[in-house]
Amino acid sequence: MKRFNRIFTVAVFIFLYAPILLLVAASFSSGTSLSNFEGFTLSRYSELFSDKNMLGLLLNSLIVALISSVVASVFGTVSCFGIRRLGRRAQKTVMTVTNIPMTNPEIVTGISLALLFVFIGQMLKLKDVMGFWTLLIAHITFNLPYVILSVMPKLNQLDRHVGEAALDLGCTPIKAFFKVTLPEILPGIISGGLMAFTMSLDDFVISYFVYGPAFTTLPVEIYTYTKKPLPPKLYALFTVLFLAILLVMIVMNIVQARDDNRSRRNKNAKGEITLTRI
């Protein structure tokens, strides 16, 4: 049974990575078809890096992802403090609303925002409402829940007494926040922000309904490509992004491993203190 599970797991990983490897392989192929490898070439990469248009689209995606995830991280974290000060029932309602973008199908979120933007556009008599700002607002809206849902538990775990101790020892509330509270909840903010960033970078469904011709992101452009044969430099771009994300994940892994070790050591140290007290 154990053996079977292991072999099965390996098979599932092959299933998950086969298409990715195919795309990576296609980036080195001199042919244009995904299913035929015709000969090794690096020219796709030089095509990619000389294509201003495609790099511009990538830049657009990165800009939207970066701004929306940073705004959502700051806005979401501040809001968490506010939500916690609300009454119990209000808190519950707010969290239900926070969950709506997470549980609703993306297509519904997309069209509902599109309806709103078109309506606002008509009210303000704007010709093209859809563009950078609608895209950014949509991304911030679906990024906020990721931040809130990963910061909130950290805030709930927070030991109140440590903050109070800081105040007693003469910290101003602002100083106490930056020296005590923020470092404690920072892992939650970072993981929520990173999740928001990756979701935003690869988002297609919601963006597809709220983008305008003036400002397009990479996934939306790839979708509109699908009627024509895809330019192979896209596979090169995929490979570059794959390596970049792999690198980020490896770094995160190392940081996390170190963090885990430290907290384990801290726990041991705390244990010792209680022991000496006894």
């Binding site: 086969a18 298409p19 990715i20 195919l22 795309l23 995904l34 690869d202 297609f204 990479l218 996934p219 790839i222 979708y223 699908t226 895809l230 896209l234 596979y235 995929f238 992004l241 794959f242 994300i245």
Partner: peptide
């Protein structure tokens, strides 16, 4: 990773 491209693969 881009879910559009992976589906195309």
């Amino acid at each position: 990773m881009s879910f559009l491209l992976r589906t195309l693969a």
